[in-house]
Structure formats: structure tokens, C-alpha cells
Design a binder for these strands. Structure first.
Ligand SMILES: [Mn+2]
Ligand SMILES: [Mn+2]
Ligand SMILES: [Zn+2]
Ligand SMILES: [Zn+2]
Lengths: 144, 144
DNA sequence: TGTCTAGTTTATAATGATTCTAAAAAGGTG
DNA sequence: CACCTTTTTAGAATCATTATAAACTAGACA
């Protein structure tokens, strides 16, 4: 159960198209970041520093910090990543872009996905004039 | 319907006791901050900068920025303030320490309280081994 | 009321995540 | 290749927050 070379080619071709269709040039750096973020079975949560570490581990070549920031912001704007509202010194991002909620383990400083069935539907009854709901996020903080 | 001098005396005596009972000395600076935060009819949301502005407006004398940070952190630790999990350049605090949820107006960068009846009970079905739930916060982001 | 000590305030420096800058490099069209 | 635009990059700048360490003060006790 390992990825063949063909799988990788398919992945890159797919993401070259995806970036082009978003108006983003498929640069070497962006495709490497796509590989780290999206060429996985499972989705995950990360900070910029986590991502930089992953890039360093998986790829011998380096990407400048400014580019990592620029790329993550661009991907977030295009909807390929979600930013998670949480008070932490570092901003968290999520490769799981579906509507879902989170546990936040305060001690470990780690996010854990909640399935929607773990929370149940949230029905916001109040309306604010001229405003519409963009997102509804539940954050459950955990302590020992 | 204005506060009498006696009301103010009652307020200060109450907060001197409250601070002492928390192991915090009732200093001039802390009592001034209590006045700005808690001597009001309505609860509110604020950032450190909001608070500094309020202090400057309501009180001719000044309090150093470090003391404002220290005091807010101390009050938060003692449970007199709540920190709100939100991704913003500045940390938000809430003088409403009851369990409640929020709208966040992305354009205005303003928090609005939701009544619990506006959201309904949130029942978290998932459990994490050895961890207990500290808080459950719903954040509803609003756009135009 | 004065002395003592731990707690507090303060100005200022340090930290650290994020954004900005502007020059060099690379993508892509013809 | 030629050209233009976008992107990358190293380094500087920004800005909220925290640390430092010296001066000050609350409160206990003589
Ligand atoms: Mn991290
Ligand atoms: Mn503000
Ligand atoms: Zn998630
Ligand atoms: Zn609130």
C-alpha cells in the first residue's frame, strides 16, 4: 500500500491544474507545499512553524519563510485551507475544509476534530440586520 | 438615575474585599480598572487597547501599560474576566463571565453576545480519555 | 506611628509571530 | 527568445505581548 511514481505524477498534474484554475501560478514552492499539505490520507491541523518543519523534513531544499506565509494565506483565501479561531500565540490552520468542530487540548496545545454527530446540529435563531452567517464554529476546551 | 457618592463607596468597599479575598492587594490601579470594567450596568467585550483608552477617558491619572496587562491577566486567572477565542491581532476579553456564545462581525471587528436560547444546548457526545471539558464556545462569524 | 517585607507598579527592553520591502528569479504567452 | 507579470527571497519593520529590574506601596507587626 505505497504510492507509486504514477500516483505522484497524477497528484502534481491535478494540483498544477487546481492552482492554475485559481489564478495561482504552479510554482515549485507552491507544489511542494501542496504535497506536504494535501498528498496525505488524513487531514491535519498545523501552524506555520509546524509546516516549515514538515517542509524541512520531507524536502531537502528549503522554502523561505515569507513564501510559506504567502502561500498559506493564498490557499486560505482560495478555500484550500481553513483558519481556526483560537487564542494561541500562533495561528492554526486546518487541511479539513469541511464544516466541523474542535476539541482544543489546552495542555498539549493540540486540536482534535469533532465529527458533526459528536456535537449535533447548531441552529442559530438570532439574526442581525444586514449580516449573514459565514461560519459556525464550536470550540471545546479540554483540561486534565 | 445617577450614581450617588454612596454607591461609589459601596462599590469600592465591595471590590477591596473581593480583591483581598482573591489574594490580590487592592491597589489604586486595580480599583480603577475594576471601576472601568465592573461599575457598569452592561457587560462588554474589550481589547487591552480599548481598556487603555477607557482608562484615559474616565480617569485623568494614568496607569502603565504593563500594569493594565498584568491586571487583566490576574483578573482572568481569578475568573473575573473571560478571554474569548478568536483570531484577531488583539486578544479579546469579556466582562460577561457566564457561559454564553458570540457573533463576531468580521467587518466591524465586533463581538456580540448570543443568548443561550439563541443557540440551544450543545451536547458534546465524544469523550477524550483523561480529559474533561473546561468550556464550550460557539463562534458565529458574520459577513455582509 | 515607624519598620519591615512581599507584592506591585513602572519605564523600558526583549520577544516572537507576522507583514512589508524591493530586488532577483521564474512562469507563461506570443 | 523577448517581454511582462507574478512570485520568491532575505532581511527589515511592525506590533502585541512579556520580561526585567529598580522604585514604590500595602499591610502586618512592633
Ligand atoms: Mn506548533
Ligand atoms: Mn480595539
Ligand atoms: Zn479540524
Ligand atoms: Zn460575551
Amino acid at each position: 500500500m505505497f504510492r507509486t511514481n504514477l500516483d505522484n505524477i497524477v497528484f502534481f498534474v491535478k494540483y498544477i491544474e487546481k492552482l492554475r484554475n485559481s489564478g495561482l501560478r504552479p510554482t515549485k514552492q507552491r507544489l511542494r507545499i501542496c504535497q506536504v499539505l494535501f498528498n496525505t490520507q488524513k487531514t491535519f491541523h498545523f501552524t506555520i512553524n509546524d509546516l516549515v518543519k514538515k517542509i524541512k523534513k520531507q524536502i531537502n531544499n528549503n522554502i523561505s519563510l515569507a513564501t510559506v506565509y504567502n502561500t498559506v494565506r493564498a490557499f486560505e483565501k482560495k478555500g484550500y485551507l481553513k483558519q481556526i479561531s483560537i487564542n494561541s500565540s500562533e495561528t492554526y490552520f486546518d487541511t479539513n475544509i469541511s464544516n466541523h468542530h474542535h476539541f482544543y487540548d489546552l495542555k498539549e496545545e493540540k486540536l482534535i476534530d469533532l465529527k458533526n454527530s459528536d456535537v449535533g446540529p447548531i441552529n442559530i435563531k438570532k439574526k442581525i440586520n444586514g449580516k449573514k452567517i459565514k461560519s459556525v464554529e464550536v470550540l471545546v476546551k479540554l483540561e486534565d
